[in-house]
Lab assay of single mutants.
Amino acid sequence: RKEMTAACTPRRRIINLTSVLSLQEEINEQGHEVLREMLHNHSFVGCVNPQWALAQHQTKLYLLNTTKLSEELFYQILIYDFANFGVLRLSEPAPLFDLAMLALDSPESGWTEEDGPKEGLAEYIVEFLKKKAEMLADYFSLEIDEEGNLIGLPLLIDNYVPPLEGLPIFILRLATEVNWDEEKECFESLSKECAMFYSIRKQYISEESTLSGQQSEVPGSIPNSWKWTVEHIVYKALRSHILPPKHFTEDGNILQLANLPDLYKVFERC
């Protein structure tokens, strides 16, 4: 597991931080080997919608929660590849102030007048994250320049770009939802926020969305749709870069829909 690298990086740093090793061990302890084997050997059937997909393993048909699986995938990559990410360069710098204002204007932020003026909160978020810029760049390849612009994001899987519609809320939550006081809790909560931002979430995906850094293989055609990215990038990574937690067998994120021999018997009677 320590050699797990989802995106190509030129050289690998050895990380011996106790906090990170502890988080890696927790993933191992909570892992479910049968689910790992199923995901490793599954045959992708198709997307139901951005949140759900169908896959077959041996004779069984499964309904998989793409949102939760991708979130767990990105969390584990962030923990196992800690401080070893490439950088996704933004085509132009994104001012943190503008991103924070967009987030505060969104109902998702939960902002009320009692929280104070949005401009003041946005300025605080910019200054707060600028103070964390060195650590964010060093460990997470999340790059913020001296003017308070976001200029780079971590490359977690080759050819995958997170849904940038979720970027404003991500920046807001970096400042408000991460435990910045304790090292282990900081790395864990920061990785979880980043994983949620990178995950496939239906509120940020339309039929026209593209999450891939590449064009489709047909010359002159439109960019790959999110469905292509889910199948050929995300579920491909799920084959080798995730140890599913045991609770996925109990919380409805992986559901067995049918045993195909039983279905064949039904059709034979028709």
Results as ranks from 00 to 15, higher is better:
1 R>L: 12
2 K>L: 13
3 E>W: 15
4 M>C: 11
5 T>A: 08
5 T>D: 12
7 A>E: 11
9 T>M: 10
10 P>I: 13
10 P>G: 11
11 R>T: 13
11 R>L: 14
16 N>G: 07
19 S>R: 15
21 L>A: 05
22 S>D: 11
23 L>R: 13
23 L>W: 15
24 Q>N: 05
25 E>K: 04
26 E>Q: 04
27 I>F: 13
28 N>P: 11
28 N>G: 09
29 E>L: 10
30 Q>S: 08
31 G>D: 09
32 H>G: 05
33 E>F: 13
33 E>P: 14
34 V>E: 08
35 L>A: 09
35 L>K: 11
38 M>W: 15
38 M>N: 06
40 H>I: 09
42 H>Y: 13
44 F>Q: 04
44 F>V: 13
44 F>E: 01
45 V>H: 02
46 G>Y: 01
50 P>H: 03
52 W>R: 05
53 A>T: 10
53 A>L: 04
53 A>D: 00
55 A>W: 13
56 Q>N: 06
57 H>N: 13
58 Q>S: 06
59 T>K: 06
59 T>P: 13
60 K>V: 11
61 L>Q: 02
62 Y>G: 00
63 L>E: 10
63 L>T: 13
64 L>I: 08
67 T>A: 09
67 T>P: 12
68 K>E: 11
69 L>N: 01
69 L>Q: 01
71 E>Y: 04
71 E>R: 08
75 Y>E: 12
75 Y>W: 12
76 Q>L: 14
79 I>S: 12
80 Y>W: 07
82 F>L: 01
83 A>C: 02
85 F>E: 11
86 G>W: 13
88 L>E: 05
92 E>K: 05
92 E>F: 10
92 E>N: 04
93 P>K: 02
94 A>G: 02
96 L>E: 00
98 D>M: 08
98 D>Q: 08
100 A>R: 00
100 A>Q: 00
101 M>S: 12
101 M>F: 12
102 L>V: 04
102 L>A: 08
102 L>C: 03
103 A>Y: 15
104 L>M: 01
105 D>G: 15
105 D>R: 03
105 D>E: 13
107 P>E: 11
107 P>G: 03
108 E>K: 02
109 S>Q: 02
109 S>I: 15
110 G>I: 01
111 W>C: 15
112 T>D: 08
113 E>L: 08
114 E>F: 15
114 E>T: 06
115 D>F: 15
115 D>Q: 01
118 K>P: 15
119 E>T: 07
119 E>L: 07
119 E>H: 15
120 G>F: 15
120 G>P: 15
124 Y>K: 01
124 Y>A: 02
125 I>F: 02
126 V>I: 07
126 V>K: 01
126 V>D: 12
127 E>Y: 15
127 E>F: 15
128 F>N: 01
129 L>E: 01
130 K>T: 14
130 K>V: 14
130 K>L: 14
131 K>R: 09
135 M>G: 02
135 M>F: 02
136 L>D: 00
136 L>E: 01
136 L>I: 07
141 S>P: 15
142 L>M: 09
143 E>A: 07
143 E>F: 12
144 I>V: 04
145 D>V: 02
146 E>K: 02
146 E>G: 04
146 E>H: 06
147 E>Y: 13
148 G>P: 01
149 N>A: 08
150 L>S: 01
151 I>V: 06
152 G>E: 12
153 L>G: 00
155 L>W: 09
156 L>S: 00
157 I>S: 06
157 I>C: 10
158 D>A: 08
158 D>Y: 03
159 N>M: 06
161 V>E: 07
161 V>K: 06
163 P>D: 03
165 E>I: 03
167 L>C: 02
167 L>F: 09
167 L>N: 00
168 P>E: 15
168 P>M: 01
172 L>E: 01
172 L>A: 07
173 R>N: 15
174 L>F: 00
175 A>M: 15
176 T>C: 02
176 T>G: 03
177 E>M: 14
178 V>Q: 00
179 N>A: 03
183 E>W: 10
186 C>N: 02
186 C>D: 02
187 F>G: 01
187 F>W: 05
187 F>V: 03
188 E>V: 08
189 S>V: 11
193 E>F: 02
197 F>Q: 01
198 Y>N: 05
200 I>Q: 08
200 I>M: 05
201 R>S: 13
203 Q>H: 08
204 Y>T: 09
204 Y>P: 06
204 Y>R: 09
205 I>G: 06
206 S>W: 07
211 L>K: 08
212 S>F: 10
213 G>Y: 06
214 Q>E: 09
216 S>F: 07
216 S>Y: 08
216 S>M: 07
217 E>I: 06
221 S>P: 12
221 S>Y: 09
222 I>R: 07
223 P>G: 03
227 K>N: 08
229 T>W: 09
231 E>A: 14
231 E>F: 03
231 E>I: 04
233 I>T: 10
233 I>W: 13
233 I>H: 12
234 V>H: 02
234 V>S: 01
235 Y>D: 06
237 A>C: 06
240 S>D: 07
242 I>S: 14
243 L>G: 14
244 P>K: 03
244 P>G: 14
244 P>D: 15
244 P>W: 14
248 F>R: 11
249 T>E: 03
250 E>H: 13
251 D>I: 15
252 G>D: 04
253 N>L: 04
254 I>F: 05
254 I>V: 04
255 L>F: 12
255 L>M: 06
256 Q>N: 07
259 N>M: 05
259 N>V: 04
260 L>M: 13
264 Y>Q: 03
264 Y>M: 03
264 Y>D: 02
265 K>H: 08
266 V>P: 15
267 F>M: 11
268 E>S: 12
268 E>G: 12
269 R>L: 15
270 C>R: 15
270 C>T: 15
